[in-house]
Design a protein around this nucleic acid. Structure first.
Lengths: 360, 360
DNA sequence: TTGTAAGCGTTATCAT
DNA sequence: ATGATAACGCTTACAA
């Protein structure tokens, strides 16, 4: 005889209650190991557990959230999931959240503002209790800010400094990074150093440049303005690479000599290396190149890239643990002044930079 | 006078009802543009909408899911979010799901089996209505299969052929990929071709090798067994790179000459290139190298990699649209025989391979 | 030691 | 054309 309806309805608490012969409340108390379960007869517990296991019962998250008025979820808004920068941060977030009772709900905006606002709405509907925004290098605040501030959620953004807009932020010290980059080249003996700055709109570009200038001033290093160029703004996936390639071609075409180059980021640096190669030049023999971020590709390219490491993973972990802490502390001490978490960058020396050859 | 409780409770349908002066049912009908809303007076609609907007009402996804017995979510289980292979597939999934009413819930297992099973459980509790598993190259079935088969969910796995276990799968034609790779090198005049096969456990390794052999047999190309090596199995992030580097060193050390090399995948190929460079050899001048997958790094390295493209994005889109279709078709025509979707790979010619130099 | 009942925010059915 | 009411699956006072 065929079963009347094959559309297998999920097992509910009531099913377990029926199977075990106890009431739904008892079952609930036992399965959740609620305080009251201390007074439940061991035999009862056992048969409840057995029934639950037999039926492969899984509590319904929606029902539980509804009743407990808490979803135990944290929204993670990411700008581009195919960007290794974002992806590494995500890894850190997951790591720090894994041990908590909070579940990250990841939404990838795909570099599209429309999708972004749609997803913020969706996250709100899902009643996430906290929000982590992972901004990659082409994040521009736009109307998102207002939308975020409208929510009362504990929110933290990674990769952009929005502390002035009263939003917690975790960033790397870009100024210091720029400083470290020139310093490294300077110590290797380089004096004619080219710089490919990031897109103008990008705050990071400016800060890294400030760091470069600070070192230069401190050490009497003159940066030839003809050797300083800037990436155009752009959204395409590999515009950093193309930008680096083109700018380097132009640098080489300008005839002004240089022995080292600071690229805005690693992808840009890879573009630079390509341009050098096409011009018949070798890195680092003919020119040293340093990148920024230390994405995975930096270590698997040939030559491997010397870079300024951002420790994306650490940033992600910091963001994750901040949010989960914020959610677990007593609610009365909320709304502390917004904090800017600044992580120190570090120099990772690899094969794309070398000591200045004596003379050629 | 201070408000009694600042713990801002989310706005509910009842609030909108109160504000607009209509009942909750009416409000619900209007906001959802339900069939019945056709008979609702325009003026009513307007004031309901206005009230909702004023209060910034957002329906509660949990409550709605509970009542409608449908979460409109699809679980996406991914093995390693920092693996570009996975990440590109994810992009495709999102693209195809974005236009549907299904929300992907992404969980990253972080290459850890424990997390994996925990996440499958979590997805079940969240009552996802479909499941997409994105397997990277170190996916080994283990106990996961049973767990998946236990669920009655429409499930599809990308990157592994589990059609024999009655699970829908989408994969690239690895055999054909191997064939294309040798063919390319052969056409360039190469006859002494080294091969670095993938880890033994991996089914892909075998299939690609079959393709290579098929071409060889067809064209009387002899593959010197001394030039065929194999990557050890491994889990570390860059074990492909290290493997390629080490195997190439050993190949070079063996003294057997070769003019071209087929690497298991792109990361392996990058490792090979590193080894060549450290041995003072140039790619492609001294040896051509071809990879597999065509991950983004393939085009930004120098030289850029010739590769067999898997079109991860297309695979993701296929998986996404299959699941959403499966969920929307009438339920009576369910359980069609499991299908294996095989996508054709394609050769992408770049700078790491070149015509065999006349003689050196 | 366990059961009863109310209620979380929605939507669907049925009245009016 | 709109409103009452019940029910979705779960937790938690409170009752027994």
């Amino acid at each position: 005889m065929a079963l009347p309806n094959n559309k297998s309805r999920p097992i509910t608490l009531a099913d377990v209650a029926r199977e075990s012969g106890f009431s739904a409340s008892t079952v609930s108390i036992v399965l959740n190991e609620a305080p009251l379960s201390r007074h439940i007869k061991p035999a009862t517990k056992e048969s409840v557990l057995k029934a639950a296991q037999k039926l492969r019962y899984r509590p319904d998250a929606s029902a539980r959230s509804l009743r407990k008025r808490s979803t135990q979820t944290i929204g993670v808004l990411i700008f581009d999931i195919s960007d290794p920068f974002c992806t590494l941060i995500l890894g850190g977030i997951q790591k720090s959240l894994y041990s908590t009772n909070y579940l990250p709900i990841i939404m990838d905006a795909n570099n599209d503002r429309k999708q972004l606002v749609a997803y913020v709405d969706l996250l709100m509907e899902h009643r996430v209790e906290g929000l982590i925004v992972v901004a990659n290098w082409l994040f521009e605040e736009g109307g998102l800010l207002a939308q975020l501030q409208g929510t009362k959620l504990p929110t933290i953004v990674v990769g952009r400094d929005l502390s002035k807009e009263s939003i917690h932020s975790v960033v790397v010290d870009n100024e210091q990074g720029g400083y470290l980059a020139v310093q490294h080249l300077y110590k290797l003996g380089h004096r004619k150093i080219a710089v490919i700055r990031g897109p103008q709109k990008l705050a990071d570009s400016h800060r890294r440049w400030m760091g470069i200038q600070r070192f230069s001033t401190e050490h009497g290093l003159r940066l030839d303005p003809k050797l300083v160029r800037q990436l155009p703004g752009g959204v395409a996936a590999n515009c950093g690479f193309e930008g680096g390639r083109v700018q380097t071609e132009e640098l080489l075409g300008s005839g002004v000599r240089f022995t080292a180059l600071i690229a805005f980021d690693d992808l840009t640096a890879l573009g630079c290396i390509r341009a050098f190669n096409q011009a018949g030049l070798q890195v680092p023999q003919d020119c040293s190149v340093i990148g920024f971020d230390d994405v995975p590709q930096a270590s698997s390219s040939t030559p491997d890239l010397t870079s300024i490491s951002q420790s994306m993973r650490a940033m992600g972990e910091l963001a994750g643990s901040w949010v989960s802490e914020e959610l677990t502390i007593s609610d009365d001490q909320v709304n502390l002044p917004p904090i800017l978490h600044v992580l120190a960058p570090s120099l990772v020396v690899r094969g794309s930079t070398r000591i200045l050859a004596p003379k050629r």
